[in-house]
Design a protein around this nucleic acid. Structure first.
Length: 422
RNA sequence: GGGGGGGUUCCCGAGUGGCCAAAGGGAACAGACUGUAAAUCUGUCGUCUACGACUUCGGAGGUUCGAAUCCUCCCCCCCCCA
């Protein structure tokens, strides 16, 4: 759970640590920001999009950004874009995003906040985090009033020069998306005015939006505020973070089990380990450098440290231990299979003709369809109790019980145990 | 409002009456090799009651023995003109 992270004395400043950890892409005024953060408690914010009721690993970088910030005694604000999610940010997208409805956004907000509280200490203290919904200050506006009070500060000429807009000029973007920048700038201005927020962080695709907010704060509030962006994180193979065959890797245990979550980190590309240790864990610099020095098969130890650290933050120590234990049982010959992913099934299902293996594989979530399951069998990828199955019409019967469970495996990495209950 | 181009299986992108479940590439998955990595080679990659059947090519109709391919209407996107 969220322990208020402690300051790390290994770095001279927040910005230094961000640089070392790979969060630093560009900053509007590094020198003055560093000075400001040395002198006083700075309130900073990052926006999250409540497009689902759970965050996924793609959001871990911004989350960790806030975590580090709080560790240095500053005050993090997480904005959930209730209003802006209804619009859709064009940055980095190639086409119009589906617009979420009010109700789903409300639901998603709650889920996201619960997850963030695993990372950030919320509360009323000076460096306690805040969670705000920009719908609270955006929704009340009427169009004419907003145009007159806010819109007049924006130059279309300048907006057109922002990369986020420029890149979309080719493929086209709707007016509603074009306005996203204005809304985000307005968020920053309001946070600056009402919460004393001085810094906005975000992915580098947010640079233009952040700069717009800085301009607006200067004009309206006459305050100097700052922006800092982190790089957009891709895996070594050029994929977005958190994509697997099964879909996104979620922080919600219901959507992605702690076991699968743990395995995701174990299976990262060698080339990503160092970068990910820095970005996604709060392990001390010295320890990370030690892990980075590992070569060959020993890199797995670094991956374990990575998986352990991230899973512990997201799912807690107990779930992490279980996941690790299951992994040991499946991959390292440990005999304790009690935490291996499993499902229950009454013994009666295996009577007489037995339960079709194809159906069992699909039911266990190891395969998406029976056709796919059939192909896997043809390719010799399916094992029951460690034995390769070649017969597509194979049925599971009582003969397959082994101490009350049936051990299924597809490929090398996908395992599932059916627990037989009376 | 006028003119032009376009919407294809996860993505990109061929196909313009049967030889199309639909080329090619990417991603992904599996096998071999390995370190639960990468690279490489091989295979797979719509669903099913599976040597056959069924459903797909923006949506709805129609022509035809037969359509992703032709016609009609509708929706959406891009470009040029007004």
């Amino acid at each position: 759970m969220s322990q208020a992270a402690q300051p790390t004395p290994e770095f001279s400043s927040f910005v230094e640590e961000m640089k070392w950890r790979g969060f630093f892409e560009q900053c509007t005024d590094e020198e003055n920001l560093t000075q400001l953060m040395a002198d006083e408690t700075v309130t900073a914010y990052i926006g999250f999009d409540p497009t689902a009721d759970s965050l996924h690993v793609g959001s871990l970088v911004p989350i960790m950004g806030l975590v580090h910030l709080q560790a240095y005694g500053h005050k993090p604000i997480a904005i959930v874009g209730g209003a802006t999610a209804m619009v859709g940010d064009p940055s980095g997208k190639t086409e119009l995003r589906k617009m979420a409805t009010l109700e789903t956004i409300e639901e998603n907000l709650a889920g996201v906040k619960a997850q963030l509280s695993h990372f950030i200490r919320f509360g009323d203290g000076p460096s306690d985090g805040l969670m705000l919904n920009n719908a609270d200050w955006l929704r009340q506006w009427g169009y004419i009033d907003f145009l007159r009070d806010v819109g007049r500060h924006f130059s279309v000429n300048q907006m057109l020069t922002r990369d986020s807009v420029k890149s979309r000029l080719e493929t086209g973007l709707s007016f509603i998306e074009f306005n996203y920048m204005i809304l985000q700038a307005y968020d920053f201005m309001v946070l600056n005015r009402d919460y004393g927020c001085r810094l906005q962080m975000g992915g580098n695709d947010q640079w233009g939006n952040i700069c717009s907010g800085i301009d607006l704060s200067r004009r309206v509030n006459r305050n100097e505020v700052y922006g800092l962006t982190y790089p957009l994180i891709m895996t070594a193979s050029g994929e977005k973070m958190g994509k697997t065959a099964a879909g996104a890797v979620w922080l919600d245990a219901q959507r992605t089990s702690p076991y699968d979550f743990f395995q995701y980190w174990i299976n990262v590309d060698d080339r990503d380990v160092s970068r990910f240790l820095r970005l996604y864990t709060r392990l001390p610099k010295a320890e990370i450098e030690q892990l980075e020095a590992l070569t060959g098969a020993d890199i797995r130890d670094a991956k374990k440290a990575l998986a352990r650290a991230v899973t512990t933050t997201v799912h807690g120590a107990e779930a992490t231990a279980d996941a690790e234990k299951a992994a040991a049982a499946l991959f390292s010959g440990n005999t304790d299979a009690s935490t291996v992913p499993s499902s229950e099934r009454p013994a009666a299902d295996f009577a007489a003709p037995g339960l079709g293996l194809l159906d069992a594989l699909v039911a266990a979530g190891l395969q998406k369809s029976k056709g796919e399951a059939r192909r896997m069998i043809r390719q010799g990828a399916v094992r029951v109790a460690g034995e390769v199955v070649k017969d597509e019409s194979r049925a599971l019967t009582a003969a397959d019980f082994d101490e009350g469970r049936i051990v299924l495996q597809v490929g090398k990495k996908r395992h599932h145990h059916i627990l037989v209950i009376p």
